[in-house]
């Protein structure tokens, strides 16, 4: 029971991370195309400014929870995926620094450097996380000892790449929706136009990815064994349709929340389909790392559950407060006020 609870929590942490940092990553990918001048660059950056750091901590918490609750999985997952995780790490480092450094020097090449590293630092995590999760859904070649028999190219298989493209598009739409809500004027119009175009691409890729998933993984089969879980892909699909519907009706916050539903639904669909595995082996199912062969002791799981049940709601409460306090659109005028301090 404890193991299953932690498995669910593990999935929820990832889902929340993708939902929150998803818009930062997506907007980072789109910024070079949406922002046409210095002012717009700064507006786009500042729509994420008060949030991105807190959002990224959900990733660290998901990683930390893997370490604490399923150390056997954490050890194998992180060492098997060494190269992609190092790339993810460097990308996140560059992204984080770009937010802080970009404005600190008023020289063209300096800003371009940080704009580029912000773009790479946003695109690469979206892509890598998609590739990594698709590979996890399909299983990776790990043996009994947890040794990985492959390299980076093993992970860049068609299904893995499809997962990467899916994440990039999913986050891009999510980010464009955020901007459409948080900016005004031309920037908002451009964001809405981008959403309408990208939504078509996203829908095609999403359908293809879901179909591909039928052949490349056993997620659907696992889900069909517990039909109530089909609610999860249903939420994802409803979210995707809802996004477009609300955009057409110019109800942009509702569209953003619908996009949240797509992300959470997709993530939980994948995670539920994995159960009880956290990292399936493609060599032999008995080598898979699961919630029942890599978990921590009942004592540790109980203590951590106590901490999570108290602290996660507290975190959600104060982060919601921050989102509420900074809900107003970022404009040229508000930028000037911020700088005056």
């Amino acid at each position: 029971m404890l193991e299953t609870t932690w498995f669910v929590l593990w999935g929820v942490l990832w889902a929340v991370y993708f939902m929150l940092d998803g818009f930062d990553l997506g907007l980072g990918i789109l910024k070079p195309f949406l922002a046409r001048n210095e002012e717009e660059h700064r507006i786009v950056m500042n729509t994420m400014g008060p949030f991105w750091d807190g959002n990224e901590v959900w990733l660290l918490t998901a990683g930390g929870a893997t370490f604490a609750a399923f150390p056997g999985t954490y050890a194998v997952m992180f060492s098997a995926l060494y190269t992609p995780l190092m790339l993810l790490l460097f990308a996140l480092i560059l992204r984080g620094i770009s937010y802080e450094f970009r404005e600190k020097e008023d020289v063209g090449w300096w800003r371009k450097t940080w704009d580029t590293s912000h773009f790479v630092g946003s695109l690469l995590p979206a892509l890598l996380l998609g590739v990594a999760f698709a590979n996890i859904f399909a299983g990776i070649p790990i043996d009994r000892e947890g040794i990985f028999h492959g390299n980076l190219l093993t992970l860049l298989n068609p299904y893995g790449l499809a997962g990467g493209v899916f994440f990039v598009l999913l986050f891009s739409v999510h980010g464009a929706l955020w901007l459409a809500n948080k900016a005004e004027g031309a920037l908002r119009e451009r964001a809405q136009h981008t959403i309408r175009v990208l939504w078509i691409a996203l829908t095609i890729v999403a359908v293809a990815f879901l179909a591909f998933t039928w052949f490349a993984t056993s997620l659907w089969q696992n889900l069909l064994a517990r039909p109530f879980l089909l609610l999860l892909p249903a939420v994802a699909v409803a979210g995707l349709l809802g996004t477009r519907l609300f955009v057409a009706r110019r109800e942009l916050w509702k569209a953003w929340f619908a996009s949240c539903a797509t992300i959470v639904g997709s993530t939980l669909f994948g995670v539920a389909g994995l159960y009880p595995a956290l990292l399936p082996s493609s060599l032999d199912p008995s080598y898979s790392r699961t919630a029942f062969n890599t978990q921590s002791s009942p004592l540790t799981l109980s203590i951590m559950l106590g901490v999570a049940l108290v602290m996660v709601p507290v975190v959600i409460a104060y982060q919601s407060w921050v989102y509420y306090r900074f809900k107003d659109p970022v404009t040229v005028k508000s930028l000037a006020l911020e700088d005056l301090y």
């Binding site: 901590v57 660290l60 918490t61 930390g64 929870a65 370490f67 604490a68 609750a69 399923f70 150390p71 056997g72 954490y74 050890a75 194998v76 992180f78 947890g146 921590s296 002791s297 540790t300 203590i303 951590m304 901490v307 999570a308 602290m311 996660v312 975190v315």
Partner: peptide
Amino acid sequence: SAFVGDVFGSLLAIEAT
């Protein structure tokens, strides 16, 4: 990590939360 995760991992996770 596999050897000490039960003790050590939980401290890192608590730190994050």
